[in-house]
């Protein structure tokens, strides 16, 4: 009897372990990916010709940002989009730019509109907001699948555009690859 019950329990465990192994596997971006992308891009921007050529005496540059344009297969919430760009601007390498490079940061226009709605004020708030440059971010991905194997290459493009001339003054890419095995319905 004991032998039988042991055998039954082993079979059950085997089945359960197999079920666990086919747990859904995903190539979606993780929080660690967001951190890697933002840290890397902040470092590259800091070292770019666009910034290294600037001094405290350079003409004042007022930078604003736009939310991420997500053209990838991953679904990003508004919060996640803002998290990615905010992390670039909040990186330790970027914080010292105010004085050393004569750069100011102003509230993004989307956030300003939300703020105005929230405080129910339409006049005079950010009246003198005049950004000279905007940072844009585009997230793309290319997907490859073969059977149960899936690969997604994510490519994030950051670029800074001068306002109002529309001149592209800086751009860079960062790519990362994620793999997964298994179907979403497993």
């Amino acid at each position: 009897m004991r032998r039988n019950s042991l055998a039954v329990s082993m079979i059950l465990c085997g089945l359960i372990c197999c079920a666990c192994r086919t747990q859904p596997s995903s190539t979606r971006l993780t929080v660690a990916d967001f951190e890697l992308i933002s840290t890397e891009i902040a470092a590259r921007l800091r070292q770019s010709d666009f910034l290294t050529d600037r001094t405290p005496q350079s003409k004042r540059l007022i930078l604003t940002v736009e939310s991420v344009t997500n053209l990838s297969t991953d679904l990003l919430s508004e919060v996640e989009k803002w998290y990615l760009v905010d992390r670039v601007l909040d990186a330790p390498t970027m914080r010292s730019l105010g004085q050393s490079k004569n750069i100011g940061f102003v509230i993004p226009i989307e956030k300003l509109h939300l703020f105005k709605e929230h405080v129910n004020e339409t006049a005079n708030i950010a009246r003198n907001r005049q950004p000279t440059h905007v940072m844009r971010t585009v997230l793309r991905s290319i997907s490859r699948t073969a059977g149960a194997d899936r690969t997604d290459l994510y490519d994030v493009e950051f670029k800074i555009v001068a306002i109002p001339k529309g001149q592209l003054v800086w751009s860079d890419h960062f790519a990362l690859k994620r793999i997964a095995r298994g179907k979403a319905y497993n």
């Binding site: 190539t27 073969a146 793999i179």
Partner: peptide
Amino acid sequence: GTSAGRVPIGTSTPGEASS
């Protein structure tokens, strides 16, 4: 939520090789 599925860019993956 871990980065277990991230591989170096130059890695040839099964998903790409047979796609």
